[in-house]
Simulated scan of single mutants.
Amino acid sequence: MPRKIWTGSINFGLVTIPVGLYAATEDHSIQFHQYQRGTTDRVRMKRVNERTGKELGYDDIVKGREVDGTLVTVEPSELDEIAPVLSRTIDISTFVDIGEIDPVYFQKTYWLAPNSKEHFRPYNLLRQAMDQTHQVGIATFVMRGREYLTAVRAEDSVLALNTMFFADEIRDPGELVGQASSAAEPTDKEIQMATMIIESMSGPWEPEEYEDTYTARVEKLIADKSEGRTPEVEEEPERPSDVIDLTEALRRSVDQARGARRGKVPKQREREEDVSGMSKAELEKKAKELGIRGRSKMNRADLVAAVSEQTSGRRRRPAS
């Protein structure tokens, strides 16, 4: 069970829903300590006065920055005095269409869960209403001494809260591409070929199919060395040339995509006929399309049974 990191309530209109905030993700990357090469001695970072070389304690340190050549220092107590007061409410100020928010604004995702059983009804009311209207609630709240801009949105069975960047934190992409992008417009034929490639490579979003292969390789490296085996080194892939014939690359990509598409068609038909070959994500999507109730609480076997029953019933139903 994940640890609750914030407790408060969501307010929209005059409705108050007590909730808890939980991290939606976890970091599986491997953490290392630092050691002096050839020894088992840990390397520690110290706070050292760069002029005297003397090690300092936390109480000896203040924060500061230069303003017009003058150093201005700030005491921790002064920062505490102006820190935003910890809020216990997520006050939704407005609802907006989720399609209007550029993904670049999203920062980190949390789950919001009702604090008790009696709060499930207003919680589900807000979640289902936002799901049907495709709206997200925009709000600000304070956590761990910092004010956050957030978007509260509806998932299949839970409310999600995304912390967001403020507008002045988003860099202008025009500084990177400048005027070059408008001066290098592709031809209509190139756009048509690129569109064909995208369409032939299109498919459902199945996050289970993607794995962190680098972390797996690091774990294998550590395991090999711990057991005295020589680590296997993979060959470096050939680097593509910077100079390309765009039209020729597009043509070859279209041919390659067409060949892959011909090979996929029988498999797709087979999967349509046999739902047991679908992933859990595909089954959940299919169950949602079929309007199967209680799908969020079903395991994979339950989903297979429910979808199979629903689809077979539809095939047997006579045409009107």
Rank of each mutant, 00 (worst) to 15 (best):
T7K: 15
F12N: 07
F12I: 15
L14G: 10
V19Y: 04
Y22Q: 14
Y35P: 03
T39Y: 04
V43T: 06
R44Y: 14
R51G: 01
G53N: 04
K54V: 13
L56R: 07
V72D: 09
V74I: 15
L79Y: 14
A83M: 03
S87W: 05
D97P: 00
D102P: 05
D102K: 08
V104Y: 04
T109Y: 02
T109I: 12
F120T: 14
L125D: 03
Q135L: 07
V142E: 11
L149Y: 13
A151H: 04
L161H: 08
N162E: 14
A167K: 12
A167S: 08
P173E: 04
G178C: 07
S182E: 09
S202H: 07
Y210N: 07
V218P: 09
S226T: 10
E235N: 12
E236T: 15
P240R: 10
V254G: 02
V254T: 04
Q256P: 09
R258M: 10
G259E: 15
K264T: 05
V265R: 05
P266G: 06
K267Y: 09
E272Q: 04
S276V: 02
M278Y: 03
L283S: 04
K285R: 06
K297H: 08
N299G: 14
A301W: 05
A301K: 15
A305V: 05
R317W: 02
